[in-house]
Amino acid sequence: MNILPSTLYLHSLFLGVTGDKIIDGKEAKPHSRPYMAFLHIGKVGKICGGFLIHPNFILTAAHCQRQNINVLLGAHDFSKNEESQQVIPVEAIIPHKCFDNLTLANDIMLLKLKYRANITHAVKTIRIPKRDEDFSICKCSVAGWGYAKTNGNDNSVLREVKVRVDFLCYFFLNSPQNKYFIFQGDSGGPLACHGILNMPTAVGIVSYASKGCDDPQSIAYIRVSAYWDWIQMTIKKYSAA
């Protein structure tokens, strides 16, 4: 069995991606990504993305951890009081035990919600891949509420970037015609690809970029399948608590 690395380095030479903000993407169709979670973090007002993988659990990046996280589900425009929205406090913040805040190794975290999300047309879970699941030649996308322009204002509506992944989508995003960017505010969101039975699958977690916007080099995603066992064991442990 091949041992795949836990971090995906997706080079901007092919994609034009840097940081954790979507620039020049497009507004997503409202509630077309019902698994998306908006994380409002602490008193500083920091935001991150995340995604619902279980009615009680959000998966996101460990570098988003702070005290007092509230999760907003079912949102398209978080600045509005949409009827579809559900605001749920986080009961337990569970970063991977080997997370390194300096290198961002093992940049993955589960959030246990204080109470179960109500599954509706606007709030649904997304599947995650098993350790040995293959994704060769697939269509993927990234979405979030991060800034929509370099040095711009906050973006309150969900935006998305669609990319085509060729060869082994774990390693290369081959889409030279798409010059989109991901930057501040979108950390923790999913790299979503079509998996088994064409179902949306969270293949990666937006982690970081090695260069700034003026010198785009590469963006790193955390490979979700590498943490399949940890995710399942953690959910089981905290569900029994």
Score class of each variant (00 low, 15 high):
residue 46 K to M: 13
residue 139 K to R: 15
residue 76 H to S: 04
residue 219 I to M: 07
residue 118 N to E: 09
residue 222 I to N: 02
residue 217 Q to L: 13
residue 139 K to L: 10
residue 2 N to H: 12
residue 86 Q to A: 07
residue 183 F to A: 12
residue 131 R to D: 10
residue 67 Q to M: 11
residue 205 I to M: 05
residue 47 I to Q: 06
residue 104 L to H: 10
residue 115 Y to F: 13
residue 178 N to Y: 12
residue 191 L to P: 01
residue 217 Q to D: 14
residue 198 N to A: 14
residue 13 L to A: 14
residue 50 G to C: 06
residue 55 P to I: 03
residue 120 T to N: 03
residue 160 E to H: 07
residue 50 G to D: 03
residue 41 I to L: 14
residue 190 P to H: 06
residue 209 A to W: 04
residue 21 K to M: 14
residue 41 I to Q: 12
residue 122 A to T: 02
residue 25 G to P: 06
residue 212 G to Q: 09
residue 80 K to S: 11
residue 210 S to F: 09
residue 224 V to L: 00
residue 38 F to R: 03
residue 206 V to F: 03
residue 237 K to D: 15
residue 141 S to P: 04
residue 4 L to R: 12
residue 19 G to T: 07
residue 194 H to T: 13
residue 215 D to T: 15
residue 184 Q to A: 13
residue 209 A to P: 05
residue 40 H to F: 14
residue 97 K to V: 11
residue 24 D to Y: 13
residue 58 I to R: 04
residue 91 E to Y: 08
residue 201 T to N: 01
residue 186 D to W: 03
residue 37 A to H: 00
residue 121 H to I: 06
residue 80 K to D: 08
residue 124 K to H: 13
residue 202 A to M: 02
residue 83 E to Y: 13
residue 79 S to Y: 06
residue 198 N to P: 12
residue 127 R to M: 10
residue 84 S to Q: 10
residue 81 N to K: 11
residue 67 Q to T: 08
residue 105 A to W: 07
residue 46 K to S: 11
residue 64 C to H: 03
residue 88 I to H: 05
residue 107 D to C: 03
residue 197 L to K: 15
residue 50 G to P: 01
residue 204 G to T: 04
residue 92 A to C: 10
residue 53 I to A: 04
residue 59 L to F: 01
residue 110 L to F: 02
residue 145 W to Q: 03
residue 177 Q to N: 14
residue 24 D to H: 13
residue 1 M to S: 15
residue 172 F to R: 08
residue 3 I to A: 09
residue 2 N to P: 15
residue 90 V to L: 01
residue 27 E to V: 07
residue 83 E to P: 10
residue 88 I to Y: 00
residue 35 Y to W: 12
residue 5 P to H: 02
residue 127 R to H: 14
residue 220 A to G: 05
residue 196 I to G: 08
residue 199 M to L: 15
residue 108 I to H: 01
residue 125 T to K: 08
residue 141 S to Y: 09
residue 202 A to K: 00
residue 48 C to A: 09
residue 97 K to M: 08
residue 121 H to W: 09
residue 30 P to F: 05
residue 4 L to H: 10
residue 149 K to L: 08
residue 3 I to F: 14
residue 68 N to S: 10
residue 116 R to K: 12
residue 150 T to N: 14
residue 221 Y to P: 04
residue 16 G to E: 02
residue 100 D to L: 10
residue 105 A to K: 15
residue 30 P to R: 01
residue 179 K to E: 15
residue 186 D to I: 03
residue 102 L to E: 11
residue 59 L to T: 02
residue 36 M to R: 04
residue 159 R to H: 13
residue 137 I to T: 09
